[in-house]
Design a protein around this nucleic acid. Structure first.
Lengths: 208, 208
DNA sequence: ATCCTTCTGTGATAAATGTTACTGTAGATT
DNA sequence: AATCTACAGTAACATTTATCACAGAAGGAT
């Protein structure tokens, strides 16, 4: 089996891995799928084994503010946090690159915390890294102006996809930064003049 | 002993409470004390038994952006999250009302997760509620304008202190919202005209 | 090629927020 | 009382961001 849990989650103990394979349910979703909506009840913890997911915070007016990416080897912290209580989701999760995931029923998630040290450590580390990531998001919107936020956004995107081309329209970027398309166009133009990017239709090439 | 762990953390098991009393160190700090600075290494988890603490995110330019309050019966999620790794603090914690706290060495924090169900549940619930609170902060700065944020700020303050008078100068409020004093003055004046507040020197009275 | 849709660029203008400069006032200090 | 200091109000202006209006370009569909 390619994309095995073993390879993607190298810190998991062999016992944990077999338990996951027994109790989890492997599933695939195409790009574009909404895996989770704000307000939905959470019944599973999601481990990503392939592909990419974006996590958004939704505004009352329908805005979709990008929080962070989830990639193979990671898990949805929100789904873990809402564990025992089977709470409502506070976020929206959208598949941006066909994913394979392992769905873990919430009771298992909780049970394993006591039984598997490597699971416990993974969960704690997931909490920690996501919390820090959200704090960084707060920094960006609290302390930085739109041009800096845009640069950060592009950099994060290219880090996530491992390439220097961002294949998104200005409109899509604007939505994820909760601003308007015109503002993004203008700021990108300035960045191009500064030699930071090269602009093409539906593609922004990062030069530095 | 007044302000006992037992009364303030009613969900803790008797065994956990005695373990805490054996291993923790009770300490007091005056209003104004900085309990934790950004970048400091964390050696303890902090349980609050009395008083109030504000948690800030610091900007590179020295801004102090208010994230949330910590009150009796609560714990600093950040200090828990940075657990085993003894990571650096990502936030700044300032005492705003004389506090009594119980300092728990980080090794204990980790050990008890396996040994005390009530500790485990408390920690998970702390993660959950703080994560949600930070998401709400993101909402405010991502989707709302300064006048709405100011109203929210005042409401949160009065909730935290349990009174309808906010005894802060415009300058202090401005710092915590990362804006300028003049903007706060203007917006407060408008709120007064709308009948939402009554303004006095060093005091804002919430009317609704 | 022609049409159509989506994407991009840009000017004009409006609104929100930040900055500068100055004034007055309340309370503390002397 | 005279002085000093922190706080609050406000006008004028600058900057940033949002909105409106429109035009042209790229690429797909017919």
């Amino acid at each position: 089996m390619q994309n095995s849990i073993k390879d993607i989650f190298p810190n998991f103990s062999p016992e944990l891995i077999s338990t996951i394979e027994e109790n989890g349910s492997a599933q695939n979703f195409e790009a574009g799928t909404i895996l989770m909506r704000t307000g939905q009840y959470i019944k599973n913890t999601v481990l990503i084994t392939k592909g990419k997911i974006k996590i958004y915070r939704e505004g009352e007016d329908g805005g979709e503010f990008l929080m962070y990416y989830l990639q193979p080897g990671q898990a949805c912290a929100i789904s873990m946090i809402c564990t025992a209580k089977s709470e409502k989701s506070q976020i929206m999760a959208k598949v941006v690159e066909d994913v394979s995931v392992m769905m873990i029923p919430l009771q298992m998630m909780d049970k394993w915390m006591m039984e598997h040290r490597s699971w416990y450590e993974f969960v704690i580390e997931t909490y920690r890294s996501r919390f820090e990531e959200v704090l960084e998001v707060v920094d960006n919107i609290a302390f930085r102006s739109m041009d800096e936020r845009l640069e950060f956004y592009l950099k994060r995107h290219s880090d996530a996809c491992g390439c220097s081309e961002v294949k998104l329209s200005h409109q899509e970027i604007a939505s994820e930064l909760n601003t308007s398309r015109e503002v993004v166009s203008r700021l990108l133009k300035k960045m191009e003049q500064r030699g930071l990017v090269k602009l093409n239709r539906n593609q922004i090439e990062l030069l530095k």
